[in-house]
């Protein structure tokens, strides 16, 4: 069964927080919500976790509209919130037991799984210590363990690795990947492009509640171009310098001028030429036009480029 979200809309008075979010999530797949603050990611997650009721739209699982049955939606979902909201007085084991109670799971039947999750997340030695004594990373790991306790079909992660060291982050990534391999579906909201690239099969880029881009990460990058070129003619390029460079490359075949970035001109290039050839082409075009070249950076588009230029209307 898949999760189908159709045309979710939510406004707070006159402000549109979400203006028609739709996607379909198959078992074993993942979708990432990307967007600046206020883009609608948190609103979408709050709707999906029943913390906020949408003005309209549907959330279906196996054809059943779960917005009409919020407890069923909550049963389906495991949720790791952006804020680490843990009870600092309880120990990890007590917190898992508390969570089991909220999920209507008998502790004697689920104790082994709870302890296995604690162990998988590297918290075994600290399992009887109060959560208040945990580091931020340990709390995040415990948070994920509680979200997985009832074997949810959908895992909703809001900035799950913010503030974690590399080891903890990779540990969490491995667990999420395992969850996907076991047939779980993942909804991820993150500002970490590496995380999105690593975990997401599909990306939705939101701005002011509206979907600006929706596709697989590689498709989005291909759509932007084969190369992204950043040219600086001076250490600090002012508008006049950028405009001069823009005039040169606006007419250059195979190049597309992207919106102005800070202190450089960004170009998308669809040429199949290799990096060395692109470098020579750009350098020659600039010097032929009498422009100095302070720096020249050429790379394949990454997810951050897709995000950056989507929000500027270039992608």
């Amino acid at each position: 069964m898949s999760l189908t979200v159709t045309d979710l809309q939510k406004s707070y008075k006159e402000v549109q927080a979400l203006g028609g979010l739709s996607f379909k999530l198959e078992p074993g797949s993942s979708i990432a919500l990307l967007g600046p603050n206020g883009a609608g990611k948190s609103t979408a997650i709050k709707i999906l976790t029943t913390l906020v009721r949408p003005d309209s739209g549907r959330i279906e699982w196996g054809g059943k509209d779960l917005l009409k049955d919020p407890p069923a939606l909550r049963d389906l979902v495991g949720y790791v919130s952006q804020e680490i909201a843990m009870d600092k007085v309880l120990t990890a084991v007590e917190f898992m037991r508390f969570t089991a109670g909220l999920l209507h799971l008998k502790w004697r039947d689920h104790r082994e799984r709870a302890l296995a999750l604690i162990d998988q997340l590297g918290l075994r030695e600290a399992q009887d210590r109060r959560v208040g004594e945990y580091s931020g990373g340990m709390k995040r790991r415990l948070d994920l363990a509680t979200a997985l306790l009832h074997n949810p079909r959908v895992l909703i992660l809001d900035e799950p690795t913010t503030g974690l060291d590399i080891e903890a982050r990779e540990l969490i990534w491995r667990l999420i990947e395992q969850f996907k391999r076991d047939g779980g579906a993942v909804i991820l909201a993150s500002h970490d492009f590496q995380e999105v690239q690593h975990l997401a099969d599909h990306v939705l880029i939101l701005e002011k509640g509206v979907v600006k881009q929706s596709d697989a990460p590689d498709q989005l990058k291909q759509a932007l171009g084969r190369w992204i070129v950043r040219l600086s003619t001076h250490e600090f390029m002012d508008k006049a310098a950028v405009d001069a460079a823009r005039a040169v490359f606006a007419e250059q075949p195979g190049y597309r001028v992207l919106e102005q970035e800070t202190a450089c001109l960004a170009l998308a290039c669809s040429s199949e030429a290799d990096m060395g050839d692109i470098h020579r082409q750009v350098f020659a075009a600039a010097t032929d036009a009498g422009l100095p070249v302070f720096s020249l950076n050429i790379q394949h588009p990454n997810l951050e480029d897709v995000y950056r230029f989507s929000l500027r209307g270039d992608a």
Binding site: T49, L51, P71, A72, Y79, S81, D87, T99, L102, H104
Partner: peptide, 14 residues
């Protein structure tokens, strides 16, 4: 205030 209530409200409480 600490966001813990949201955790409770997102749980499938009957």
């Amino acid at each position: 205030e600490l966001g813990f209530l949201d955790r409770l409200l997102a749980a499938p409480l009957r």
